[in-house]
Design a protein around this nucleic acid. Structure first.
Lengths: 153, 153
DNA sequence: TATTGTTATACTCTATAACTATA
DNA sequence: TATAGTTATAGAGTATAACAATA
């Protein structure tokens, strides 16, 4: 039986949004079990893997506006997972570093994230997953290129 | 140079969200040029293609909660693009039908949507695009299956 | 003068409970 | 009693302007 949204299913953007929306909803519940949300886990993972970076650099890597990133770091700091350390070289900036508790929780949550990854890509070969990642990168690059052309950069 | 979000790029969910977020942002500007937004275009496209369905059926097809769908139909109705017609068989329900203006605008916007599709998938073969669509469908099915298992359905 | 982090704010999208009118 | 559409509302996520401290 043909679904009512058939005329939209030819559009990659529509399919992207439908699948991503459902996946993010599931991911929310995965991370919530650890008292985190997607943005706080993403931040924690970066801070644990590459500690010492400025707050603004991490926000930029995650494509999160700096004002919105403040609360994310607040949550992690209040939960005792990361520290804001004043830099001697530039006293405006904070270097983000993980606490032992943050490192331990990150390892645990990463396992759950990996389990979700497996359930999400169930039935797909490694080659199919790689092709998917490449396609997502190509589209991201196409959009970025388009934006830069439009802004005359 | 390795980006700071490298530890997250192994996660399909992270890549999905980054690419989709950028694509939706672009699509917003595409539809805004016609006084529409993504949800109103999607609704208009369905109503034009398969007129006469109840409001709730269209909302369900788009995975939009019915309360949130009211405003979407309001916008389309106020813009003179679709009509809410009381059904004789069930006077609680409205059948959604397009106006001539709605049909004409839909055709025009669909061209812009198709142009965006081309720019989004630029550099990808038809086979790659098909594989992408299949991968998105597989993941959507995996999530749905997982949800149903959890709810014991 | 420019930058880092911050505050305040607003707008969109999404989700849920409760109402009304019909069935 | 159940359903279709609606209202009200609340919570995320996201975006921008403006400020204090520092460069």
């Amino acid at each position: 039986m043909k679904t009512l949204d058939a005329p939209l299913r030819a559009l990659t953007g529509y399919r992207l949004r439908r699948t991503t929306s459902a996946a993010m909803s599931r991911l929310n519940t995965v991370f919530a079990q650890f008292g985190l949300r997607r943005a706080t886990y993403a931040t924690l993972a970066i801070v644990v893997e590459t500690p010492g970076h400025r707050q603004g650099k991490v926000a930029e890597a995650l494509a999160i506006e700096r004002p919105n990133f403040v609360q994310i770091v607040d949550e992690l700091e209040n939960a005792g997972l990361v520290l804001r350390e004043k830099q001697a070289t530039d006293r405006r900036a904070y270097a983000l570093t993980p606490t032992p508790k943050g490192i331990a929780l990150c390892a645990e949550v990463s396992k759950a994230a990996q389990a979700f990854e497996v359930s999400l890509t169930c039935g797909m070969s490694d080659a199919q997953i790689s092709a998917l990642h490449e396609a997502l990168d190509v589209m991201a690059a196409n959009i970025k290129c388009q934006e830069e052309t439009e802004n005359g950069q």
